[in-house]
Amino acid sequence: MKKSKFERFRRFLPLYIMFLPAGIYFFINNYLPMGGLVIAFKKINFNLGIWKSPWVGLKNFEYLFKTSDAWIITRNTLFYNVLFIALNTVVCVALAILLNEIRNKMAKNLLQSILMLPYLISMVIISYLVYGFLSGESGFINNTVLKAFDMEKISWYAQEKYWPFILTFVQLWKNCGYLSIVYFSAVVGIDPTYYEAAALDGATKWQQIRHVVLPELTSVITIMVLLGVSKIFYSDFGLFYQVPMNAGALYNVTNTIDVYVYNALLSVGNISMSSAAGFYQSVVGFAVVILANWMVKRRNPDNALF
């Protein structure tokens, strides 16, 4: 028995060795920083090094939650995520169903490719695209659109009331292609005999969508929504940092936890605040994934992430 176990190990040794490089990488890139979360409870002093720096208990968190920032970044992160998840699901499922209506194969492929395009463009470039429309002095909207209606110029990068809409639009513009194609591939996979049966029973187009397509998509929709919910404490750093060009006047509606952590660490150099905010994000974010997955699993284990 002992020998056979050893033999088995020897036989599989190459497989363990194959796994090793990535295993080490995950240790350095992910597991070491997880241990590093304890710095949220320390006052970092680089002369002493990270491990020898003194413990300060919950002080960092006290400072963080005394500021109004803690509330603003939590509100923004959650608000935008809930909005994005709901909007993306509705728009992209609708787009997927529409895409499936198009019979001409070439047109269908072309439209798919165009829809996917923004997904491949970096947020830096997108911030330039947005700037072309919104720039105060030379933007297309101020100089052409508003002029045509005899309206005053608007300094977009200084007025926060517009940004919830702008960010939502840019987000949808960038991501809807990707998500539509995920849903589209599920729509294509639906057994055509279902429709035939429904049509024989005299179902209208709308009834077919409601009673055949949507139920068949439930599983993939649940998984995609669950993926979104599991990242509800995280935000697209590029969207909230690049697109508003990190404008201070807009922080009230653009500052999310990720932007805050970045600015606190690298612009302000405040490790205490940023590590406390980061710890809060990691731990609460983790609790949300576990909870959301558990709730889905209880209803239907097939739709859960793990």
């Binding site: 350095i28 920083p33 590093g36 979360l37 990270i50 980061g278 974010g285 576990i290």
Partner: peptide, 22 residues
């Protein structure tokens, strides 16, 4: 071991310190 890294991570600050300090 691999999957867990998708669920939980240390975030920017510890990652930054790991890579720059060590």
């Amino acid at each position: 071991y691999v999957f867990f890294t998708m669920l939980f991570n240390g975030g920017l600050v510890p990652t930054y310190l790991t890579y720059t300090q060590y």
